[in-house]
């Protein structure tokens, strides 16, 4: 008897982290049965990924997802062991996350998503996030040596990147009704450090995170017992919006992209994060 488990994935990521690109590439892998998981039937709605898959087939990167969009796509998937899941994969414009953080008001639709999700996947693009230098790391005495290179900007004060991501996770935990501190009973968390190819790192993803965003890393390891921290390069190389990449066109996008595993080795199987979240026993096989 096959067991069908409905698994709704909450995919969280600010704009520009590559949610749609990953979704499209993951979908291609599932359709080609290349990884541990494969599509077992027909997906409910492939529309959100249609344009992106088309762009990738032609060796180009896709356009930005509009802010207002939020489409859930249901994918019946199964693995080699015959375990069947219904994966609910969302696609939306990352500005929704930004708005959520700025207004601190959570639309009831988002609340329902957080409450009903069985696993959380947070995508971070480390190039977009950094820790600024401060008085302690760069004392005043050294100021004279480094004359101001950039003119002072008039931009309004923004919370630091680490604080913003921590607040986002705290809000998710609060909506889940668990608050911070209850390490049991919260959905498994998978952190994907996207656009790994741009980072030029060869260390394990967990160490890279700890080095670049130490406070966020502390927060995650302190609140989740076994968080999964992986690197992701959905496209393997940067693509241009208008100039096609010839190799992509001839070989097909399904031959590109990789996941960086916790031990810093890589796998072409983009469905690996699903394995880690849905069926952890399979992870090491």
């Amino acid at each position: 008897m096959t067991q069908v488990l409905a698994q709704s994935m909450l995919l969280v990521g600010e704009s520009g982290v590559g949610k749609t690109h990953y979704g499209a590439q993951l979908l291609k892998r599932l359709l080609n049965s290349k990884g541990r998981f494969r599509m077992d039937g027909a997906a409910s709605n492939l529309e959100p990924f249609e344009a992106t898959m088309e762009s990738l087939n032609n060796g180009r990167s896709a356009a930005h997802t509009p802010t207002s969009t939020y489409v859930d796509s249901e994918w019946p998937i199964s693995n080699k062991k015959g375990l069947t899941f219904t994966l609910v994969w969302p696609d939306y414009g990352g500005e929704q996350i930004k708005k959520l953080l700025a207004t601190r008001k959570i639309p009831s639709t988002w609340r329902a998503r957080v409450e009903n999700s069985s696993a959380w996947m947070l995508m971070l693009r480390l190039q977009q996030l950094r820790v600024s230098d401060d008085l302690l790391s760069k004392p005043l005495a050294r100021l004279a040596e480094e004359e101001a290179a950039d003119p002072p900007s008039d931009e309004p004060i923004q919370p630091s990147d680490q604080a913003r991501m921590i607040e986002l996770l705290q809000i998710l935990l609060y909506l889940r009704g668990k608050g911070v501190g209850d390490a049991t009973n919260i959905p498994q968390l998978c952190l994907l450090l996207s656009c790994w190819d741009e980072l030029g790192q060869s260390d394990p993803p967990e160490e890279v995170l700890k080095r670049q965003l130490p406070m966020l890393s502390d927060f995650i390891t302190s609140n989740w017992k076994h968080p999964i921290i992986l690197g992701l390069s959905a496209l393997e190389r940067p693509l241009d919006k208008s100039v096609p990449d010839e190799e992509y066109v001839t070989r097909g996008p399904e031959h590109f992209g990789y996941i960086v595993l916790p031990d810093a080795s890589t796998t072409q199987d983009l469905t690996y994060p699903l394995t880690a979240l849905l069926d952890p026993s399979e992870e090491n096989s």
Partner: peptide
């Protein structure tokens, strides 16, 4: 977090302005 950020803000370096 915003409270901490507000406190720490003036000790952080923004390009060109001494903290």
């Amino acid at each position: 977090l915003s409270g901490w950020e507000a406190v720490a803000r003036s000790m952080q370096w923004t390009p060109g302005t001494p903290p």
